[in-house]
């Protein structure tokens, strides 16, 4: 057999192994009742968020329609806030903000983590690896909220300071996991074979190695998604969060001034909706890990 066909053969083996991993995972996930319920709930939140994008509901979140702290009524399902804005509309619209923050941060940090982790792992021991590890160590050592504040300062109040800071710090865990996996994958025959037939190294990394870490990336992305939504709340409380718009974090930050005076609507509804999404996402993420990681306990 020529080395090229060996490589081809081994690649198909690797690919086939991957296919069976995914089809097994899909089967397992389908039979995970909690996971499916959680997934359905996440989807429901997704529809809620999409509805605001298409203008079906909750686009009057910033309109001042009522009085100060109106109670729950047919007009204001969740009451109104200090400015007379509809808390129901604000709660629903915040779902969209949560998905925006979560998706942007999850996707970008996963991409960066995958690329840097794979490159570091592929060239493990070289200066490239050292550099990535150093960068990871540095970013992990800066207190997160200070880092966000610093980025917010540096970006002169841009609405995306928070996103940038989260992406810059959240990729490190993904990067570490991918690096470890790549160091393992590197020893497999299909990589050796790809190298033997002279494929360019970057092509090996991107075409053959990174696809074999997708199961890690998917799970990590869900974890980062949750982390981003939760961090947004704290950052909004610190005045570093979502700038133009409404979010559960901003509602909770407002609520910190209101609960003492007995106005609970902002607090209760933002908490409940946020808890629902985060809980569903956590369970969905767990089910994914169960399905995808044979070693997970």
């Amino acid at each position: 057999m020529s080395s090229a066909s060996v490589a081809a053969e081994n690649t198909t083996i690797a690919v086939r192994g991957r296919d069976s991993l995914w089809s097994k995972a899909f089967y397992k996930f389908r039979h995970d009742r909690m996971g499916m319920v959680a997934f359905a709930l996440v989807m429901a939140y997704g529809v809620m968020a999409l509805g605001t994008v298409f203008g079906w509901w909750a686009n009057d979140w910033s309109e001042i329609r009522g009085g100060r702290f109106d109670p729950i009524s047919a007009d204001f399902w969740f009451g109104s806030n200090v400015n007379g804005q509809d808390i129901f509309a604000r709660t629903v619209f915040s779902t969209r903000t949560a998905f925006e923050v979560g998706l942007v941060v999850a996707i970008l940090s996963t991409l960066i983590g995958a690329v840097l982790g794979a490159v570091a792992g592929y060239y493990s021991g070289s200066w490239i690896d050292e550099l990535v590890l150093w960068l990871k160590g540095v970013l992990d050592s800066i207190p997160f909220y200070l880092f966000v504040a610093a980025v917010a300062f540096a970006m002169q109040g841009s609405a995306y300071g928070m996103h940038v800071a989260m992406v810059a710090t959240f990729w490190t865990t993904t990067g570490r996991l991918v690096r470890g996996e790549v160091i393992k994958l590197k020893q497999f025959e299909f990589v050796e074979a790809a190298r033997a037939i002279g494929l360019p190294e970057l092509k090996i990394v991107f075409r053959h190695i990174i696809p074999n870490t997708f199961h890690i990336l998917l799970v990590q992305a869900t974890i980062v998604f949750v982390a981003a939504i939760k961090s947004e709340v704290i950052l909004s409380f610190l005045g570093l969060g979502v700038k133009n718009g409404v979010s559960w974090g901003r509602m909770l930050a407002e609520a910190t001034y209101e609960v003492g005076a007995g106005h609970f609507n902002n607090f209760i509804w933002a908490s409940l909706f946020m808890f629902g999404l985060v809980m569903a996402f956590n369970m969905f993420s767990d089910a994914l890990q169960d399905a995808l990681d044979p070693r997970k306990v």
Partner: peptide
Amino acid sequence: SVVGMSISFLIVVIA
């Protein structure tokens, strides 16, 4: 513990 992980720090503090 999943429930605990799903509640934001800020919510816990306020509550």
